[in-house]
Design a binder for these strands. Structure first.
Lengths: 339, 339
DNA sequence: CTGAAAGCGCTAACAA
DNA sequence: TTGTTAGCGCTTTCAG
């Protein structure tokens, strides 16, 4: 496994085929007409030498790496893989490659990646970060390359973004338990740096206010199973406790179910639980989770399409695309029931 | 969002600071001593212009992209995200960046990516593909750059690889149900192109043979929930049916549980089920899944360490590392019980 | 300690 | 239709 031999270059091919490097380049790119005989000779040389053009050199010349950066909060969080997959698929279709930047739930690492992506000269960046920090704003405003946001927004920077309709999602979840007859409702939110969390809460508020006698108790979680457990205990300590708990996400909901059962109460007989995201496997949990599904695949695809348009120089100004709001769906399963 | 202005180059900085490009390069790389005053001037110019060196140009010159390719079967499969995350973490620590190549469960796409990675001149490749095809073998044998395998092997190519001990895992699962008293055991495997599946089956065989009166019925699944359901029906159609079913992976196990219940039987009271992988959430399923856990994080980290060693030219020949076998753990939960 | 210059591997005028 | 040539933006001898 020693790889000391210099890779074959376009010059090697040119010499072997008895033509100039320009001709080899033409044959390979296929942009210009080349005499069939010449082309054949070049192809033969390419095959014989196992020549692979250097994308690095080409990128330098063309000022394009055909690579897009993808920044995610944490790929190990079950919410993200589908987005990553969708972005990857769309990029691959368009001949682009994806540089994965996992924030590892650490904002400073995300920021470091943003700068790194610039140095790497990616053609554009897709950011799918649930906790887009205030301090990135400055960076985003003077961004030196096309950026598209997935499920996050950056105030002050006019960037194309695709969001699921978080407010509608929150409302849907609340209306569902309200319709079942619940009136004392708990909500476990996420840290306030998370914009989606705010929107979902607002949607829940909309629904609650529309129903006389309905009350809402909000507790902050952190989007994890453990955080959900802790928050639930605080919710359950209040008397009278909520008969339905709406969660920021499915992971939180799993924690809620655990905590409720630890208190000797049943889901959904005593307490109904609603999640958010419809992560894989949420349908196989016990009880199968009632949750709000977003079309993450569509988000990823849309983001790449916009990005590639912009990279190509086509595409309207950001303001025109503005923010696309994707509808959400309530998945009613077994974790909710009348009080 | 128009990005027409040429990015500032090392020349711009040099001119502004009144030095040569060589000096700017020295200041930035920090390799050579530079007079403090000169250095300060350069730094000022860098800051003033917001200069970011071009990684592309640097890569061309240095013949290194500080990028590693990561080939996975399908990031949307819950088995992979942890590996990806571990690889990403390890790469980031070492100043490398990760080009994600999702095979989308399509071997031809994986192959296309392998070639693409060469063109992109990545410094090395980590392959975590459960179905490493025979036809890649030739490619792997004459691989033009360092490759490390995660949980897969390539016969004929001496490549460093880290595998979990699939045979031991299969044995552990079988011994567990055997110890519970089961004798009619079913196994739902994966397509035979999958080497891990074969090993696991072998391990199961080892355990079965050691117990007089124990019998094994094997059916091929495809590693999905649906495949698990279908396979289970075939297993249950036999009379007398198995009282315990060991699965190729957790997704299959979920399908098994469904199918068993569809037949009006209970898990684990009537049929015990064992999964494999211990994917996230498997502990929250109903019933919580008894399964075999592998240390995927360790695998990812190890792979990157080996790869970076080799990239640096250090590191022994592949044969010396050979194949590392990582121990597995049986996670006994609620899906298994005495018959 | 710093500058001049060559060159990494490719593409695209411009000529022939 | 093909070759010559000038870079793309950087690093690194080799001189000074």
């Amino acid at each position: 496994m020693e790889h000391v031999t210099r890779a074959t270059t376009i010059r090697d091919v040119a010499e072997r085929a008895g033509v100039s490097t320009a001709t080899v380049s033409r044959v390979i790119s296929g942009t210009t007409r080349v005499k069939p005989a010449t082309r054949a000779g070049v192809m033969a040389a390419v095959a014989a030498l196992g020549y692979r053009p250097s994308g690095v050199a080409r990128s330098l010349k063309l000022r394009s790496t055909r690579t897009i950066g993808l920044v995610v909060t944490d790929i190990a969080n079950p919410y993200f893989p589908k987005i990553v997959r969708a972005v990857e698929d769309a990029a691959f279709e368009r001949g682009h490659t994806v540089l994965l930047c996992d924030g590892a739930d650490d904002p400073s690492r995300e920021e470091a990646y943003l700068d790194l992506l610039i140095e790497r000269r990616v053609d554009g960046i897709v950011i799918a970060s649930s906790g887009l920090e205030e301090r990135f704003r400055e960076w985003l405003v003077r961004r030196p390359l096309p950026v598209v946001l997935v499920n996050c927004t950056a105030r002050g920077a006019a960037l194309p973004a695709i969001l699921s309709d978080n407010r509608a999602g929150g409302r849907l979840a609340a209306e569902h338990v309200l319709a079942l007859g619940h009136r004392r409702i708990g909500h476990i939110s996420a840290p306030s740096r998370n914009a989606a969390a705010g929107e979902r809460l607002a949607g829940i508020g909309d629904a609650i206010q529309a129903v006389p006698g309905a009350e809402l108790a909000v507790v902050e979680g952190d989007g994890t199973v453990e955080g959900g457990e802790v928050a639930t205990r605080r919710l359950l300590d209040r008397l009278p406790g909520p008969t339905a708990i709406l969660c920021y996400n499915d992971l939180t909901a799993i924690g809620v179910v655990r905590a409720v059962r630890d208190r000797g109460r049943r889901v959904p007989a005593d307490v109904s639980v609603v999640g958010y995201d419809d992560i894989p496997l949420s349908a196989w949990l016990e009880p199968a989770l009632t949750t709000v599904a977003q079309d993450t695949s569509e988000m990823g695809r849309w983001a790449v399409e916009r990005l590639v348009e912009r990279i190509a120089g086509r595409g309207t100004e950001p303001a025109a695309d503005g923010v696309v709001l994707l509808p959400v769906r309530l998945m009613v399963r077994a974790s909710t029931a009348p009080p």
